[in-house]
Structures are given as C-alpha cells and as structure tokens.
C-alpha cells in the first residue's frame, strides 16, 4: 500500500458516499445517470467475485463490500425509491455500445484465459468507460449541480491517483499491469475535459455550466 493508492481509494469512497448522500438527502436523482450507476454496480460485481475465493486483508474486503453495497443502494434509490425523479429522457446513452466491445476486448486481451481473469479484465475495461453515460447526460442537459461536479471530481481523481500508484509500484516493487494502466489512462483522459471545467469554473456559479 502506498500514499497514492490510499488517497485514491479514499477519493473513490468519497465519490460513492457523496453521490449516495446527495440522492438520499435531496430525495432526488435529477441529473444523475442511472445507466452509469448500473455499469459501476456491474464493475464491482465482476471485479470483486474474489471476495468468495480469497482473503487479502480486512481493508481490502471491507472496502469491496462497501463499494458493492453503496453501488447497489444507489441503483436502488435511482430506479426504485426515487424513480419519479429519474430523468430517463436525458439518460439516453446506448450502453450496449460500451458493454459489447468491452466484453469482446476482455475475451481477446487478458492476462490469462480463465473465467475469473476475464471477468476481472471485463471489469477493468468497463470501469474506464462507465462514466460516459453520466458525462453524456450532463452535456445534454447543459448543466450539473455543484454536488454532482464534486462527485465527478473525486471519481476522476481516484484513477489518476492510481496511475501514480502504478508508477510507484513499478519503481519500488517491479509491479506492472499494462491492462490496468491502459484502462486507467483511458478512464482518466475521459475526465480531462471535465477537470478543466471544474477547475476554471470552480466556485463561480451554483449551477456549473458544462459546454457540450
């Protein structure tokens, strides 16, 4: 464990909690892409199946359970409890255009051709594009609530910190996982546009306007 990975995990946890609390307290999921949240639930489910097969540490296991629990709770709030506030018209990204290519890529490019490894690879590739429906929705509505931008900032920051973690681990431990690094780069690049707007428009206006 190193400082980049720890702050990355905490940033990821913060994002997940921020979103869950925002929906719960405002009793509304307006402006939130339910499709992205479903993709994240799939990402955690396919990646953390090893909860059933191996124990790494209390931290590892508890964080995985928290991530999975919050992901499904968020999906439940969006599609069941506050479904009346779900903005389905703007959440129109065709996720099959993500899931099918990612699934094919996971079968073609992986570290070894076993079910667990392919599911893990699928999860890594899917996570890198899972935020697209959310970013697409914001570009369609043209704005996002401030709290949503904080959620996206923490979520984007987490994988950027993981990139630093992989540099650290390569230098100190000789650890190298090109699949995770490649997907992490793609994931972080997708946020760059948002990062720029978040920093330049930070604090100026209540409703952050996002240029399409």
């Amino acid at each position: 464990m190193n400082v980049f990975r720890l702050t990355g995990d905490l940033s990821h946890l913060a994002a997940i909690i921020i979103l869950l609390l925002k929906i719960w307290k405002s009793r509304s999921c307006a402006g939130i892409s339910g499709k992205s949240q479903i993709l994240f639930a799939v990402v955690f489910t396919t990646r953390y199946l090893d909860l059933l097969t191996s124990f790494i540490s209390l931290y590892n296991t508890s964080m995985k359970l928290i991530y999975i629990g919050c992901a499904y709770a968020t999906v439940y709030l969006i599609y069941v409890k506050f479904r009346a506030t779900y903005d389905g018209n703007h959440d129109s990204f065709r996720v099959e255009f993500l899931v099918v290519p990612v699934g094919g890529l996971a079968v073609l490019i992986n570290h070894n051709f076993s079910l667990m490894e392919i599911l893990w690879t699928f999860s890594i590739y899917l996570e890198s594009v899972a935020i697209l429906p959310q970013l697409f929705m914001i570009s369609k509505t043209g704005e996002a609530e401030t709290i949503t931008t904080h959620y996206l900032f923490c979520l984007g920051l987490y994988r950027a910190l993981y990139l630093l973690n992989w540099i650290w681990r390569y230098y100190f431990e000789g650890f190298l996982d090109m699949i995770a690094i490649f997907a992490g780069l793609v994931q972080t690049v997708l946020y760059c546009d948002f990062f720029y707007l978040y920093v330049t428009k930070g604090g100026k206006d209540r409703k952050k306007v996002m240029l399409p």
């Binding site: 990975r5 995990d9 990821h12 090893d50 191996s54 790494i56 540490s57 590892n60 964080m63 995985k64 991530y67 570290h111 070894n112 893990w120 993981y162 973690n165 000789g174 650890f175 190298l176 996982d177 090109m178 699949i179 995770a180």
Partner: peptide, 10 residues
C-alpha cells in the same frame, strides 16, 4: 509474469 501477482488492488 509480473501482472499475475495477486490482485490486491480495489
């Protein structure tokens, strides 16, 4: 191969 180390990351 290095990549096959145990998957200890989240």
């Amino acid at each position: 191969k290095k990549a096959n180390q145990t998957k200890d990351e989240l």
